[in-house]
Simulated assay, not measured.
Amino acid sequence: METWQKPETIILWITIVALFVIVLLTVIIFLIRAIFKKIIKAKEKEAAAQLDYQKNLLETTIKTQEIERHRIAADIHDGLIGKLTALKMQQEITNNDQKTIEALHESITIARRISHDLSPPLVEFTKLPELIKELLDPWEQHLQISTIFDIRAEVNDREEFKVQVTRLIQEIITNTIKHAEATYLHLHLKQTENYMALRIIDNGKGYDVAKNSKGLGTKNIETRVQFLKGTHKVKSTVGKGTTNLFLFTNT
């Protein structure tokens, strides 16, 4: 019997071949896993870069909006209101037309309110509850408004944060007036060392959240919430009003 025909030799070769196949398969599996890991890391890096780009774009958009709002507010305050005030004073001195004077006074009041809404004055020196009270005051002509301010710690008091929160409230109230046909609005603000929560409830006609979540107002709200790294939930039932919940953690 030839040496290669011996059972021991055959078993040895089978063992060598099996080990070779195992090693080859192991190498192939290792290479495939390495390739997949490389692909996953590249995808993760691409996703992170895209996320950073979106965050930077969002931040730039919000800041650009605020700069433009401030510019328009300054133009209204320094230009329009100044001229209307001068005209009103002239009418008071030279003319006794009370209706014209009252119309000018009303125009000045409206222009001042628009200017304040665009850019709240002295926002850096004003606490958030006071800013909200000033914001809500003109709307009390259209809505019955109640408020609760549960301030356990003065946190998130940065100018940027306060401005964006007031923008959120403005957007909610505008939507309430335009679409909800509400007569009552309740605002509850709670600040602690760990978080700030804001709840806004109206008694309007409500809506189906799943079918009506793509409007411009909703997108504006979500954009600002994302900018502030917060969360926002809406609860609404047709005929039973709407509740907006916001939560911002203190980091």
Rank of each mutant, 00 (worst) to 15 (best):
P7A: 13
T9S: 10
I14M: 13
V23P: 02
L24W: 09
I29Q: 09
L31E: 02
I32S: 09
R33G: 02
A34Q: 13
K38F: 03
E44W: 05
E46I: 03
Y53K: 15
Q54F: 14
K55E: 09
N56E: 13
N56G: 12
T61W: 12
T64Q: 14
E66L: 14
E66F: 15
H77C: 00
L80F: 02
K83Y: 08
L84W: 11
T85S: 10
M89L: 07
M89Q: 07
Q91Y: 05
I101W: 01
E102V: 02
A103S: 08
H105K: 02
S107Q: 10
S107G: 12
A111K: 03
I114T: 07
S115N: 01
S119L: 00
I132Q: 04
K133F: 08
W139R: 15
Q141P: 00
T147Y: 09
D150F: 08
I151E: 00
R152S: 01
A153E: 06
E154K: 07
V155G: 04
R158K: 14
E160L: 09
K162A: 05
V163N: 05
I173A: 01
I173V: 09
K178G: 07
H179S: 12
A180R: 02
E181Y: 13
Y184D: 08
H186A: 14
H188A: 07
E193R: 13
L198A: 10
R199M: 11
G204P: 03
V209M: 08
K211E: 09
K219D: 04
K219E: 05
I221F: 05
T223A: 07
R224N: 11
K229Q: 11
G230Y: 07
G230W: 06
G239Y: 15
G239F: 15
L245Y: 11
F248Q: 01
